[in-house]
Write a protein that binds this DNA or RNA. Structure first.
Length: 160
DNA sequence: AGCGAATTTCCTGGTT
DNA sequence: TAACCAGGAAATTCGC
């Protein structure tokens, strides 16, 4: 269960989900999520220079939030300030500690990824808590704060 | 068709 | 009080 990152290795253009399609491309594809109310926080206005400076706008190839697993989705969002919209924020980049700034928006985004409009942060966080026992995440006793564990990979700055 | 992993859903109870 | 956190239990989804 650690090999799920068979990323953009070799995937013919015949797949329904183009692995190289960026999240924004996927999103602008509207027909994907018709019932999307545009009233909550960070929805589609991801153009608002998103608080983040131009610092680490490293356009790494991990632009596609196609990860099948929740933790990878979170990781990739954390690594993509362009798509992040300030939903997630690093607390300690080196230690892999991060905070969910906009819980509702995160749940909505995850719901979009899974095509589930009933997703909520309550349910998403339950899934995150299951990661504690597998070492994907480690517990941090601060509200909305999590930390990548020994079995999480691909989040470290010097390994990008 | 059957299984297992990864959630998803629901819930009770405690905390901030 | 609202928003979180802890986990147990059970249902669901999906790939193999």
């Amino acid at each position: 269960m650690l090999d799920s990152v068979a990323h953009s290795s070799f995937l013919p253009n015949t797949s329904f989900c183009d692995p190289l399609m960026s999240w924004t491309d996927l999103f602008s594809n509207e027909e994907y999520y018709p019932a999307f109310d545009h009233q909550t926080d960070a929805d589609s206005n991801c153009l608002k220079t998103s608080g983040i400076k131009s610092q680490d706008c490293h356009s790494h190839s991990r632009t596609s939030l196609q990860s099948s697993h929740l933790w990878e989705f979170v990781r990739d969002l954390l690594l993509s300030p362009e798509e992040n919209c300030g939903i997630l924020e690093w607390e300690d980049r080196d230690q892999g500690i991060f905070r969910v700034v906009k819980s509702e928006a995160l749940a909505k985004m995850w719901g979009q990824r899974k095509k589930n409009d009933r997703m909520t942060y309550e349910k998403l966080s339950r899934a995150l808590r299951y990661y504690y026992k597998t070492g994907i995440l480690e517990r941090v006793d601060r509200r909305l704060v999590y930390k990548f564990g020994k079995n999480a990979h691909g989040w470290q700055e010097d390994k990008l």
